[in-house]
Amino acid sequence: MTAATGTVAETPAGKRPSLRHRLADRGVDRVLLLLVPGVVFLGLLFVYPFLYGLQLSLLPASGGLFDNYQTFFSDSYLRDTIWTTLSLGVPAALFNVLASVPIAYRMRGRFRFKRTITTLLVVPIALGTVLTADGLIELVGPAGWLNKLLVDFKVINEPLVLIHNYWGVLFSLIITGFPFAFLLVLSYLSGIDPNLERAAAVMGAGWWERFRRITFPLLVPGLAITFCLSFVLAFSVFPSANLVGDPAGETRVISIAAYHAAFEQFDYSMGSAISMIMGAIMLGIIALVLGWRSTMFRGATGGKG
């Protein structure tokens, strides 16, 4: 990177470096100016609103500094949204990551149709919440194909209730979250040098031993990142909790509470406070996962761990 500076030494002693070289030298400084628009933009539209929200949350319409936070944690209707959100987000993220591992492990090499399968997996990204929600209602709803099939084949007598409750939202989170987690895990797996596993195979290790002792430890950093990203996706569930969930009861997640406070009760102060709590919980869980990860193997994985 400092090649340009090094060339200055080549100029004959006593003579000033040529304009060309001095410009090249200064170019190093000017390159950093390229960052300015991005940093200013994020400062104005990301950092400032965040600080503004924090300040707003500390200035409730009535009461003291931490009144909003006290209300949130003392009102069980609000406090329980944390538990509701976690009980949706954690299982969904865990499922998406854990189901991805064996499938990605099978698909890590080269084989025919690999490109087709990875392309097909991108389809759920295009679905959008509304089509997913409508599809779920029509597919696993009381009159949907799934219940019809199960009832007609006498597997069950009564249709299963799988929408407008916890399960509907969980399905929706898996449909949209699984492909994302899978593609991430697959890319981390492809980043592990296959020669390591071949070496183990030469030494006589079976596939389980190779997976447990070689591939899995190298994959853990990637899995931690994948879990965090999947969790963030699932944690912020808002539209599907309304569309296929039970937004007043079983799936009243924290984002619904925040939206309700800010834009239905027009209590921006409370809305901001709930947003801050939401952000804090999420960053706390991410810190926990990444902290756990740092106790595992740390070294070159070939990919960007």
Partner: peptide
């Protein structure tokens, strides 16, 4: 610091910073 600044808006879900942002 700059890298973290560029990572945060991707890591934090939109609904979290969206409410303060919309307020502003």
């Amino acid at each position: 610091v700059i890298t973290v600044l560029f990572l945060l808006p991707i890591l934090i879900p939109p609904i979290t910073y969206g409410i303060p942002l919309a307020t502003v």
